[in-house]
């Protein structure tokens, strides 16, 4: 069953740069998809459209029954509550502890404190940071900070996890650790769409690979490898 259906999407920035054109893509529930391509190929634009940070000029993007392309600004939260987003630069709040950073995403839903505590500790255990709940982001390593971001992204049980180069700032060992966490989350049923430049990760994971080149999808491999497609 399709979770994401992108049809005939086109995006041109105000500067005149054509970021994406003729994009058709379908991603099923439970998929793990890598989106790869050189810098400027449009993969960031595509991923930003999935969480409605950008809007397409043309076409439709359906995610879990929501037409993201037509979603009004004040209704964006409806989509965001169904997805989790992980960034390369973490975007953690430095003045909140690890626990508070993760709980922050649940407080939006007005859950009671008990439920929040139970779930936050559960996801922190999943990402291996249960014992660092009271620490602040700057007391953690890069890999640990990324795990906090993943914990925050999945704490509300999203159907879709969008990862924009989550290992971009991490060393190879730490990156593989992060991928292990993401793989575990995927195995629990969450669909993952991830952009990356990391050849080793793509090769090791053997997942679906979508290749973008100058704003267009040029390859779509079921069990791709980096050397095959780029």
């Amino acid at each position: 069953m399709d979770l994401i259906r992108i049809t005939d999407v086109q995006k041109t920035y105000k500067t005149g740069t054509v970021a994406l054109y003729d994009i058709d893509l379908t991603i099923s529930k439970g998929d793990f998809v890598f989106v790869i391509g050189a810098s400027g190929s449009g993969k960031s634009t595509l991923i930003k459209m999935l969480y409605r940070e950008e809007k397409p000029d043309k076409g439709s993007i359906m995610i879990g029954g929501i037409n993201v392309a037509k979603l009004k600004n004040r209704k964006v939260y409806i989509l965001r509550r169904k997805i989790g987003v992980v960034f390369q630069d973490f975007k953690l709040l430095p003045k909140l502890t690890v626990y508070e950073n993760v709980a922050f995403a649940m407080e939006v839903f007005n859950y009671d404190k008990k439920k929040i505590h139970h779930r936050v500790m559960e996801v922190l255990e999943l990402v291996g940071l249960k014992n660092k709940a009271r620490m602040y982001p700057d007391q953690l390593s890069g890999g640990e900070q990324q795990r906090v971001v993943i914990a925050r992204a999945i704490v509300n049980n999203p159907k879709l996890l969008i990862c924009d180069e989550p290992t971009g700032n991490l060393d190879p060992d730490t990156s593989m650790g992060i991928m292990k966490v993401l793989d575990d989350i995927n195995k629990m049923g969450t669909t993952i769409v991830m952009t990356t430049h990391n050849r080793d990760i793509v090769n090791a994971m053997k997942k679906r690979v979508v290749v973008l080149h100058e704003g267009k999808i040029v390859q779509d491999y079921e069990r791709g490898k980096y050397y095959e497609v780029v």
Binding site: R74, Y77, K91, F104, A105, V108, F109, N156
Partner: peptide, 14 residues
């Protein structure tokens, strides 16, 4: 700004 961005990202309504 980042705080607001994160609030939006995690699904807080405007």
């Amino acid at each position: 700004k980042t705080e607001i961005e994160i609030m939006r990202l995690v699904g807080a309504s405007n």
